[in-house]
Write a protein that binds this DNA or RNA. Structure first.
Lengths: 169, 169
DNA sequence: AATGGTTTTCAATTTTAAATGAACTCTTTG
DNA sequence: CAAAGAGTTCATTTAAAATTGAAAACCATT
């Protein structure tokens, strides 16, 4: 390789490293909005911006985190379907690539995190209505019924709108 | 008051206490989905289910939290427009009531928390595009451009859909 | 069935976030 | 304008969450 080309290559590597850092930073923020930890965001960011599949060792090396963190982070990302395992010819290690269809990630996030919460919330409101129904005093009852009906309306809206949102993202 | 009535009253108080506990529990979960702390959820829940406005002392007493927590929690809730101050005749203390239109709360949550994040994210993607544009190697450039265009598309979708969602909630 | 390479698990540690409460500020009132 | 009442601030403490790393489990190969 000529000296000129080597210099250009080095420059390009620097640019790529910068891009990587920016992408990691981006996803750390994004994932933290979904309640995911810094290390999970870092791993996803690194994989998203990587040109080739990476194994756990690569990830540990490049992000400087422990093997425990990497293992657990990848586990979360797999369960969110945010990463996929790709088997590389003649390699024993697992190689990972990022799922780049965000719709899918959002979809499984809803299914795993939001939907169960909504179910619990729905059950809880039902329980509260039962409790309120046993109040004798009519005026008092009507106060609580009003409050609960607002809660029910809101819950219903969330239950229909959120999954719809996830689908069109 | 007759013994019978007194007994009934006591029973009703127990029911109301139960309802209160259930409401507080409900809102602690709900607010934690918005990244708000336990104490903030408790305060809102208590106010939401309370038949009359409460002052800070009431809140401290009934929830058993410190005055510092109560003060800071109410501050967060005011800035989210999740509570309003009502001035009570001949009282020096501030009395609070819960905003029961969830749409409004969601609206200000978006304005305060989500929109700024989206702006930061947008700026960051722009910055990354600039960085990527300076890559010479055509093949490498096209890889990063593809990744960035997905990011931009997603960002745009979030920027239009999330505020729309907040409006119709 | 022993070895070496890979990943997972989990008790201990570190880091981060939340809660406390005493000191301070700001108001109101006698 | 002193004193008390109400609310806020913030250094310290406490509690919760994330991370670490060594040990255990796994699993393909010899």
């Amino acid at each position: 390789m000529s000296p000129l080309i080597a210099t250009e290559k080095k420059h390009q590597d620097k640019i790529i490293a910068e891009l990587e850092a920016e992408a990691i930073d981006f996803f750390v923020r994004f994932m933290s909005m979904l309640g995911l930890s810094r290390s999970v965001g870092e791993i996803y960011g690194l994989l998203y911006i990587s040109q080739e599949p990476l194994n756990m060792d690569d990830i540990v090396q490049r992000l400087g985190l422990s093997s425990g963190s990497a293992s657990q982070g990848l586990k979360s990302l797999r369960s969110l379907k945010a990463v996929q395992v790709t088997y590389q010819m003649g390699e024993r290690k697992d190689y990972y690539v990022a799922e780049y269809e965000f719709r899918k990630i959002i979809g499984s996030f809803f299914k795993e995190e939001i939907v169960p919460q909504l179910e619990v919330a729905g059950a809880k409101v039902g329980k509260m209505q039962e409790t309120a129904d046993s109040i004798q005093d009519e005026e008092v009852q009507s106060f609580y019924s009003n409050r609960l009906s607002r809660l029910k309306r809101f819950h219903k809206a969330a239950k229909t709108l959120l999954p719809a949102l996830a689908k069109i993202m």
